[in-house]
């Protein structure tokens, strides 16, 4: 059921990586997943050409006018619908958000990313008013160090907390394995640990992130039904 959109109008924030990691990890653990690639550059569709054995379904032929019916069709047949959005403020992005059960907003710990993430947050909040329903969202930090948080990162986390913007506990850390997903065009489990450094640590990170998201959607669903 849950439609999880990954949005931030800033390019390079880590949207496609987050969407791909989340989608393939859920599929790896037995979930039925559709990933809708809404970026006109089709990064996920290109990834799928690599021949990964993942059971995740990749859909890429969507437009502003077909995004809503495409989401509606997929949500009826799949446990998870992940929507990877383009790094532009567009109608495609806003329409996907209106159809989401959860909006993940990936950002790097930088002021530029934070400013663009804030645009996504503002949009979500105003669409909530129009639709008269809550659209839950979470910031996801990407490309952070797995070792020690930088001062910059601590400051940004503190600012977000102070303004009441919810953040996922798990970050998608900076790891060569995450970058290699797009180089080798396979899923994490299919990466050759001889060619790529730190695959097990990346898998653990991916699983932790996915578990946090699944727990969150389970809680949100329960809340929505109550």
């Amino acid at each position: 059921m849950p439609v999880i959109s990954v949005a931030n109008p800033k390019g390079g924030a880590g949207k496609s990586t987050t969407a791909l990691v989340l989608g393939t990890t859920l599929a790896h653990f037995g979930g039925t997943v559709s990933l809708i690639d809404c970026d006109p550059n089709r990064p996920i569709a290109a990834w799928a050409q690599g021949g990964s054995a993942t059971a995740m379904r990749v859909i890429s032929d969507v437009t502003e006018s077909t995004i809503v019916p495409t989401i509606d069709r997929e949500r009826g047949g799949r446990q998870f619908v992940v929507v990877d959005l383009e790094g532009t403020a567009s109608r495609m992005v806003s329409r996907a958000i209106t159809r989401s059960d959860l909006v993940l907003i990936p950002m790097q710990a930088s002021a530029v990313d934070a400013a663009q993430a804030a645009r996504a947050v503002d949009l979500v909040r105003e669409e909530e008013q129009v639709l008269n329903r809550e659209i839950p969202f979470r910031i996801v930090f990407t490309r952070t160090s797995s070792a020690i948080p930088t001062r910059n990162e601590k400051m940004i986390v503190e600012e977000l907390r102070a303004s009441g913007i919810p953040v996922l506990t798990t970050h998608l850390n900076e790891r060569a394995a995450f970058k290699s997903l797009f180089t080798y065009r396979v899923a994490l489990a299919e990466l050759d640990p001889i060619l790529v450094n730190g695959v097990p640590a990346a898998q653990e990170n991916a699983q932790r992130l996915s578990e946090e998201v699944v727990e969150l959607v389970a809680t949100l669903t329960k809340k929505a039904r109550a």
Partner: peptide, 18 residues
């Protein structure tokens, strides 16, 4: 979604690109 959803988005700079 009602047409207002697109209008709100437009005000935030999320405009039609197609």
């Amino acid at each position: 979604p009602p047409p207002e959803a697109d209008m709100v988005a437009e005000r935030h700079g999320f405009v039609a690109r197609e």
